[in-house]
Simulated scan of single mutants.
Amino acid sequence: MTRVLLVDDDAELSAMLSEYLEQEGLSTHAVYDGEAGVREALSGRYDIAVLDVMMPRLNGVEALRQIRAHSRMPVLMLTARGDDIDRILGLELGADDYVPKPCSPRELVARLRAILRRGVVAEVQPAESERLSLGHLQLWPARLAAEWRGQPLSLTGAEFRLLEVLARQAGQVVSKAALSERGLGRPLARFDRSIDVHISSIRQKLGSTADGRAWIQTLRGQGYLLIKD
Rank of each mutant, 00 (worst) to 15 (best):
E62W: 11
P141T: 11
S104Y: 06
T2M: 04
A178R: 07
V75F: 06
Y20T: 10
M55Q: 09
G185L: 09
R65Y: 00
E164T: 04
S154W: 03
G119Q: 14
A145D: 07
E130P: 05
K176C: 00
D96F: 01
M54G: 01
E107R: 15
G223L: 01
L64M: 06
T28W: 08
D9E: 13
R65S: 11
L139G: 13
D84V: 14
V124P: 08
V99F: 06
S71P: 04
V120T: 14
R81W: 13
R117W: 13
M1I: 06
G82T: 05
P126H: 13
E62V: 08
A69L: 12
L144E: 02
A178F: 00
L108K: 14
V121A: 15
R111A: 11
R113N: 14
V165Y: 00
K205A: 12
S18Y: 09
A95P: 12
L78I: 12
A63K: 07
E147K: 11
P102C: 13
L64E: 02
P126Q: 15
M1F: 00
G34N: 13
G221D: 12
H198C: 01
L13T: 09
L51E: 03
A11R: 14
E164V: 03
D83Q: 13
R186K: 13
I48C: 08
L26N: 07
D47V: 05
R203I: 04
L6W: 05
A142P: 04
P102A: 08
Y98D: 00
L91F: 10
L184F: 03
L144V: 08
S27R: 07
A41Q: 10
L184R: 10
S200L: 10
A63M: 12
K228P: 08
R68D: 11
V61R: 08
G82I: 04
P56Y: 04
T156A: 05
T79S: 15
P105M: 06
S180V: 00
V31D: 03
M54V: 07
L132K: 02
S208H: 15
A170R: 09
G185C: 03
